[in-house]
Design a protein around this nucleic acid. Structure first.
Lengths: 202, 202
DNA sequence: GATCGACTTGGGCAAGTGCCCAAACTATAG
DNA sequence: CTATAGTTTGGGCACTTGCCCAAGTCGATC
């Protein structure tokens, strides 16, 4: 259905701008997104950016936070369904494996981390997001009877983000390589697999 | 010794520019460094940037790679001295703990990771750097008799980088919290020390 | 028809960008 | 002294930046 009223078209433009922002942030970097190339990508005139949003930064902030929240919510669902937290981690990791270090979703996260360093509002919003996500991992680990859920959750999340940083440099890195180690981490530590083959990288 | 000849002064200016670049990249971000604020920080005229360097990007690339190499070499020395790889990791982590998420060295790394995504030359240089660093961790783990040195090294390095990403959001994160988990990872799992599990808590 | 409000247009502004270059400077060599 | 080579200066070019705004379009309401 093509939007007809002004309000409907306005809402559509806002959505297009936010989607274009998500694309461009991963493609050219947070600081390289300008009102003009953003409007270009969204297929609208540049003047509209500052009609619909207070500033470029506010637009980028909203786009990033909404995008990340959607992805994290999806991941939390995985955890709710899987009975072993390690299965949820594996699902997350293999999701990254189809890309070769230029996964747009991953880059959006890293760009946002960096931008948050210089944008206090974005920092608090992202901190809330990550706290909630970490909490859901902690409860999953608790329910699995893990001895140190808090510290392990922090390490697992750091590893996930660090892994996609490294994958940008070395696309040959495979989730399969590190999965056994993460599985051992997420497991209760009571039944380690006897012989785990050594992976390699490219 | 104050430089007197033109060549000496030129070398000094190059060094000042590279140092200023390292500072500014962590303070305002890779893409926000311009010829003018860079020259300003270095205390030289803007025209000198393009006399001494082919381009701004080339300057930033060289500054980042040199800075990272110096820091990694230092860390490798730690490994050479410590007999337990976990001690080296602990030394690295506590080095990060004195900052509150705005450690200039850490930010330089993350900024470089991101810039490498869009600069093929920087990517290969950083890949070499990280491969060498990871290799030294692998040998340290091998000598300690670790069963899966390769995969563990990848996870440990990813955790290190991911941890500083998260620390930017949540400065309350302490290295002490995750150290037991990393120690378990880096250990052989055979507990060479008589009493080792469950040390102090953060 | 007229009016209203949300939205859109296109042009503009001051400031900043990377890079360039002719001219000047400076310490050494012939 | 005059060359010479390396370095430094200050201004400039063409372009992009975020943000602004008067004038316009368009459907809904009176």
């Amino acid at each position: 259905m093509v939007p007809t009223t002004s309000a409907e078209r306005g809402r559509a433009v806002r959505a297009q701008l936010l989607a274009a922002a998500r694309e461009l942030v991963s493609e050219i970097g947070w600081n390289a997104v300008s009102t003009r190339n953003l409007a270009d990508r969204a297929g609208v005139r540049a003047g509209l950016v500052h009609y619909h949003f207070e500033s470029l930064q506010a637009l980028l902030r909203q786009a990033a936070v909404e995008g990340m929240r959607a992805m994290l919510d999806e991941a939390v669902d995985w955890w709710a369904r899987a009975d072993d937290p390690a299965d949820g981690i594996e699902a997350l990791l293999t999701g990254l494996d189809q890309y070769e270090g230029d996964d747009p979703a991953s880059l959006l996260f890293v760009e946002a981390y960096l931008a948050a360093t210089r944008d206090p509002l974005l920092r608090t919003q992202m901190a809330d997001l990550m706290l909630g996500f970490r909490g859901s991992l902690v409860t999953a680990l608790e329910q699995a009877g893990h001895p140190t859920p808090e510290a392990t959750a922090i390490v697992v999340l750091a590893t996930l983000d660090g892994f996609l940083l490294h994958k940008g440099l070395d696309p040959g890195l495979s989730a399969a390589t590190i999965m056994p180690v993460l599985r051992q981490l997420a497991g209760t530590g009571l039944s380690p697999d006897p012989a785990e083959p050594e992976g390699r990288n490219g």
